[in-house]
Amino acid sequence: MMDNIYLPQVGRIAGIEEETQGARAIKTFKVEFPNGDGFEHACGQCAMLSIFGRGESMISIASSPLVKDYKQFSIMKMGRVTTAFHDAQVGDLIGIRGPYGNHFPMADWKGKDLVFIGGGVGLAPIWPVIQTAVAQSSHYGKITVFYGARTSRDIMYKADFERLRGLADVQLSVDAPEQGWQGYTGFVPANLMDKAPSPDNAIAITCGPPIMIKFVIQNLQKLGFADEQIYTTIENKMKCGIGKCGRCNVGKDYVCVKGPVYSWAELKTLPQEY
């Protein structure tokens, strides 16, 4: 019998962490595979998560492939499915199928400096890359992580960031002045210019709101990063995740299969349909 590509596995919500609050709150879910099956993934890949009766949503796998016991997902409360996730409890059983999409070419980055630039919920797709890089830090040069949020309360993975400080150069920012804030005040692209990481033998990986990505890329170019040295991910509405339902294309590429990871050199050749 052919594998049924639409039939999800059963996942169990093993932990829920509240990351940020407000209208578009974010929660991070640890998902285990109680039936023992599961799947391997690479950094940057996604999975279709579902709450039966509500539907499916494509979500980046936010944990490193080195973590085998569970997979982690950070979900922003948006509509039907994501709200159902925000209403879910530890122990709830959900649907999960994947992994989908391409991945960051980390094998090509051996010996290079890695500069990560994230904003808001846009940390999730690059978080597994950061985690994997610091766990295998001997493979890479210097690791720098820029991350900005609207306010200090909107910073994701707060506890993990504390641990990360010892392993990488962490540069946090908040958009507006705040009492007691020790990091940079201002937008992420400005913080990037302020610290001006060197493009020599380096790769920059950025993810966040489209407007942030736009200015980050402009600034990276000013710093001397070539288009081939810049990586990002893109998002389009998805239903199938496997290049059949026809909605997520940018030009000839279905983002669910050929993306979501692109170098800027590749992305700038595609039509602006994302």
Binding site: Y6, S50, F52, G53, R54, G55, E56, K239, C240, K244, C245, G246, R247
Partner: peptide, 16 residues
């Protein structure tokens, strides 16, 4: 091109 949705067929049950 197609869509995928969950449709309820009763309390606690339905179809994708």
């Amino acid at each position: 091109c197609f869509d995928i949705n969950d449709e309820a067929t009763g309390a606690n049950k339905g179809e994708r």
